[in-house]
Nucleic acid binder design. Structure first.
Lengths: 145, 145
DNA sequence: TTCTCTGCAAAGACTTTGCAGTAGG
DNA sequence: CCTACTGCAAAGTCTTTGCAGAGAA
């Protein structure tokens, strides 16, 4: 799995180690294949794997994966951080419904004018991997808020 | 002040009351005139006003103001909620630097294509007041991350 | 062997909640 | 006078941290 090899190389580059817990968490991210909280990743490992690990290890590993840009991280409408594999998905934006909290994925091409404008007017480099947009989804909108 | 009158009317519509604490918090939001956390609003009142209130009252009032759309609310890079008066500002987007945490305001016109696309493809109604975009600011970008 | 990493437990930061007294309308 | 609101204190939720032992390289 090239993702694990990449991770291993990144770790070695800083004198860090590829432990079984880190492998397990990376595998869980592949299996979940969607935005997941640290708690959800933890639960998934508890159920699907014989390996045991601690929730604090999950947090520490996710932080590490984030610094290597292996995972991207957004905050849902409930304020929790949610993670997903960065390279596993085409670049996309998350549409987070402020009522039901569900997350939808939208393409990024229509954002190009905005990205250019942010760069030209503010020197700001928009991070597409961490982009989440609040609003109302179709159902909640129809339900009248 | 029309903002307070609006708030009063909204409250009356639901049989709720305009208390001195709610007036104080609304005034603080006007004085701060920028994104502020509950704690910052609380501190501001403690310093600048003779009225005393509890931090839990600040949270309860901000939640109330949010349901009436008097304030809008985003999450900064540190995960804290930050509030500002919704009508006091022209519609704008917050650019949140993932390194230094500073927040910049950007115009929304270049987002029009994206807003239209989200609506057409997903039936998703983007909420501009709650829109924050992560990335790297000019300084942190120049500093090489 | 050498350090990094882990599990555990505890603390931390921010936010919410239950309750009895206070005060708005 | 009614009942929503407040302050207080306590709990809740999510996340981080200190430390001694475990385990990669």
């Amino acid at each position: 799995m090239s993702c694990e090899e990449d991770f291993f190389r990144s770790l070695r580059g800083r004198g860090l180690r590829l432990t079984s817990q880190r492998k397990t968490i990376l595998a869980a991210l592949h299996q979940l294949d969607e935005l997941a909280t640290a708690e959800e990743i933890f639960q998934h490992v508890q159920k699907s794997s014989s390996s045991s690990l601690d929730i604090s290890t999950v947090y520490r590993t996710l932080e590490l994966l984030r610094t290597f840009q292996v995972v991207s991280c957004i905050q849902g409408s409930d304020g929790q951080y949610r993670y997903e594999l960065a390279r596993h998905h085409a670049p996309h934006v998350h549409l987070v419904c402020r009522v039901c909290g569900r997350v939808f994925e939208a393409a990024v091409d229509s954002l190009q004018p905005f990205i250019s404008a942010a760069w030209e007017h503010h020197g700001f480099e928009v991070d597409l991997n961490a982009l989440s947009v609040g609003g109302l989804c179709r159902e909640c909108c129809a339900r009248g808020r």
